[in-house]
Amino acid sequence: ELTSEQMELLQFVMDAYNKNRLPQELATKLIVQDDIVTNDDNFVFLTTMATSHVQLLVEFTKKLPGFQTLDHEDQIALLKGSAVEAMFLRSAELFNRKLLDTHTDRLAERIRNSGISQDYINPLFNFYKSVGELNMAEEEYALLSAIVILTPDRQYIKDKESVEKLQESFLNILEKLCKQHHPNNPQHFARLLGRLTELRTFSHHHTDMLMSWRVN
């Protein structure tokens, strides 16, 4: 069971996560808007989406207990190092949310038509699928996001120890929650952590993905 301190921490994370979701109008636009016809429109739209996404990510991170006590430049290095991974994780959640079931095909089509090379899109969809198969609870997404952001071995981090301590507190809660939510699957926690490795791979390929997009 979670200690009262851990329950409080989880509550903070969930509040921060729920307050910083993608605004409904942007989510709707992503799925239903048909008036984006040219590549330029698509470029502007996806850039706006990405900017909002980063802003939300920063707002979420600012509210994580302990984050603001870290060195300011370390805060920036953590966010810079994790933004792409955290965004892929959020997009996987969005993609797998039941609410969007009827729109998933539309969203998939939009991503396929984005101009990004198929070589990158197929692994992306495989990732979404593999995350979907884990049937993660909302708390698991929120905690995993915090864990991704608070990765101590990002470039330019000066005080790795403080970051590691913070990350550990979230890892401990996630491990306990996994046991509660998936009592019949003792491997669940390990599988979640395995997704982090996949996220790192996406992050490494992200620049190439953008390049292929621009070239197209």
């Binding site: 502007v44 706006t48 900017t51 980063v54 920063v58 600012k62 300011h72 920036i76 966010l79 933004a83």
Partner: peptide, 21 residues
């Protein structure tokens, strides 16, 4: 426009809470 900002600029502005300025 936001599309001209780099990732670090967006992060710095959002961290300082003055993104719209």
């Amino acid at each position: 426009p936001a599309s001209n900002l780099g990732l670090e600029d967006i992060i710095r502005k959002a961290l300082m809470g003055n993104f719209d300025e």
